[in-house]
């Protein structure tokens, strides 16, 4: 690990722009945040705000062609993106990428994009509205193993820059930076600790996780809760760790020959058809079963064992987007009160 002092963030941005396509979270006139490409000319200030859509579609595309068969041979469809950097990605979303890296370890489409990406993490020093990252070990400070470079804001628009691995070190090569004293790391720890203290009480969530894993949540509770699941797919679409997909063949017969494209697209385990078999048999035909499974994937011990962490990174996006008012905070509260 190398620690530097950075006086002017734009020097780093310009330096990276010379080697990478640079994406950064930008806020529009309606205060909506999204990942947008930056250029030398268009270079907006770095903000520590959660974009509504996480960064997962940089690697796991919402729709992509897996293969094309044109009647004679199969065509390669592996993506070949130019090197790119996600500049200022927050800890929760970085934790999610690290989680997805495990899930898509052997997926060539995911990995083709992932290999081209440099992750520049940004520490949060203020809690966000729905977030509870400290509860699930996903923030507010960037976890070292999840980013190549970490940025930590200091006073007077100064920054602490931490390179966590060779990829990070390689990326900042040639940039004139002052190495700085390790006590800045202590200061960072203090700031992050203070930020953690500012998060609201998380006992609803921790207690509900215990209840969930102790088998204290009844089937009838899930059934009643699931009446409010409209199967919109909003939670699974916005959840940075959700990775379910479906596939379909698209046949194009408009030309002389038949071209068949195998496409994969984001799916949602909350759809009734997700697990239905051709015989109409469905292990999760009831909405209650589907909702239960979703939360089990996020907080169940069996998945913790597999991924070495919870499936939830505490970003709170599901709470905001669920039309049925059964996002994470609402569900955990109800588990505590009623289950």
């Amino acid at each position: 690990m190398e620690i530097y002092h950075l006086d002017d963030l734009s020097l780093l941005q310009q330096h990276l722009l010379a080697q990478y396509q640079l994406y950064q979270v930008v806020k529009n006139d309606d205060k909506q945040c999204s990942w947008q490409q930056q250029t030398k000319e268009r270079n907006e200030p770095l903000i520590a705000e959660l974009p509504q859509s996480s960064a997962k579609d940089f690697f796991f595309a919402e729709h992509e062609n897996l293969l094309i068969f044109n009647g004679e041979y199969f065509q390669e469809t592996l993506p070949t993106p130019a090197p790119f950097v996600l500049f200022g990605i927050l800890s929760c979303d970085l934790t999610a990428i690290s989680y997805q890296d495990q899930f898509f370890k052997d997926d060539p489409y995911y990995q083709a994009r992932r290999q081209q990406c440099l992750l520049v993490g940004l520490d949060c020093i203020k809690p966000c509205q729905q977030g509870f990252c400290p509860t699930v070990d996903a923030g507010p400070g960037v976890r070292e193993h999840t980013a190549d470079i970490i940025l930590h804001p200091l006073e007077n628009h100064q920054w602490l820059l931490i390179s966590t691995n060779d990829k990070g070190t390689e990326a900042i090569k040639g940039l004139s930076l002052k190495t700085c004293h390790w006590h800045f790391l202590t200061q960072r720890d203090l700031t992050l600790h203070q930020c953690e203290q500012e998060f609201t009480d998380d006992s609803d969530i921790t207690q509900a996780i215990d209840k969930l894993n102790n088998g204290e949540v009844s089937d009838s509770f899930w059934q009643q809760l699931a009446v409010q699941c409209l199967g919109c797919s909003g939670c699974t679409t916005l959840c940075p760790t959700c990775s379910c997909y479906g596939t379909r063949s698209i046949t194009d017969e408009s030309e002389d020959k038949k071209v068949i494209t195998q496409q994969r697209f984001w799916d949602s385990c909350l759809y009734e058809g997700f697990q239905r078999e051709a015989s109409f048999h469905n292990p999760s035909a009831e909405a209650g079963k589907r909702v239960q499974r979703f939360w089990q994937h996020k907080f169940g011990n069996e998945f913790f064992a597999e991924f070495n962490r919870h499936g939830c990174v505490g970003c709170g996006r599901c709470e905001q987007t669920c039309p049925g008012v059964i996002g994470v905070h609402s569900v955990m509260k109800r588990i505590n009160n009623n289950a």
């Binding site: 199967g231 919109c232 909003g234 905001q320």
Partner: peptide
């Protein structure tokens, strides 16, 4: 306020 239904999505 940040929500859509399945049709919208």
């Amino acid at each position: 306020q940040g929500k859509l239904c399945d049709k919208g999505w």
